[in-house]
Design a protein around this nucleic acid. Structure first.
Lengths: 158, 158
DNA sequence: AGTTAAAAAGAATTTTATTCTTCAAATAAA
DNA sequence: TTTATTTGAAGAATAAAATTCTTTTTAACT
């Protein structure tokens, strides 16, 4: 079992994380030039950051518009009942819907916040009627449409 | 200027995109094994996907909890006035706030939806008082706290 | 069938990641 | 203050990957 005390981050580790969450294709040599180290220590630091779970994975960020998923909708939903079993089933159902790219259990008037990506209004309508609508125990659903994306870093603010 | 007609995606391209948005560290050889091609055509296809803008960038996904940014807050805000100039200034101010990792211009009762990442309630309070509070022309702000993250793919549903 | 263009494969090359060994600095013990 | 001991970094050597180049196959068209 890994202990947190084995992995204290110094300033250089943080700078490496910041650089990598903006561009993970930087070579260890390029990273080294930015943090004033040679390739080897950079390599070892990055491997350690991966091993200790600070870096979860490496992914390609795709262009949603070019892939015809340009309409983002936030959907607030409430459940009719709040038993553990009903919550569990809802979560299971939601995870199966590929259009739902994020889902959070939230405080306030609603129980869950979903972020949904589709091509357009028509596809969203179909999604609600065919998929969301058939999930059991949804009490209410309130959709908010994204008119413009101002900022999306895909980054933890460190 | 690139034209869309120059870049029609076939089934293999789509499979490559799906694979890469889950794990961009797969080698061209590994990708090839999954789509039944050798390294070279996979390499050429991926380069083309990058060049044509289907792949925006490659990033490391960090562990927010381990980096002490485990509290996610969605904040709905309205502006007092809706002139172009006031909107422009708000956007400029928001972009400068590193805690705001996403920002959308939305339909409905509010004007903007912000996704904010901080360590805990105390830090959120400070963020609201010191940063959000000092932005001009905010009419109202309504915070929704994330109690649990159910799903977060960082992926376009293709 | 024969010609041409596009896509794929395989070999060759270059670049990068990875490992290994050595060195220097910092820390702890004496 | 000196002497071990550990830690982090550097540089060289190696392995693996990306990238390029050439050849072959496939598919479309005449």
């Amino acid at each position: 079992m890994e202990n947190n005390s084995t992995s204290r981050l110094d300033d250089i580790d943080l700078r490496l994380l910041k650089l990598l969450q903006n561009n993970s294709n930087l070579t260890v040599k390029e990273l080294g030039a930015k943090v004033n180290l040679s390739a080897t220590p950079v390599f070892e630091r990055v491997k350690k950051l991966e091993k200790n779970g600070f870096i979860k994975k490496y992914v390609a960020v795709l262009n949603a518009e070019k892939l015809d998923k340009g309409l983002i909708v936030f959907c607030n939903v409430t459940l009719k009942e709040h038993t553990r079993e009903i919550g569990r089933q809802f979560v299971k159902d939601i995870i199966a819907l590929k259009e739902v790219v994020e889902c959070y259990n939230i405080s306030g008037d609603y129980d869950f916040l979903l972020k949904i990506m589709v091509s357009d209004m028509k596809e969203y309508q179909n999604f609600v009627l065919d998929h969301l609508g058939s999930i059991k125990n949804i009490g209410s659903a309130h959709s908010t449409f994204v008119m413009g994306e101002i900022k999306n870093d895909y980054a933890v603010p460190i």
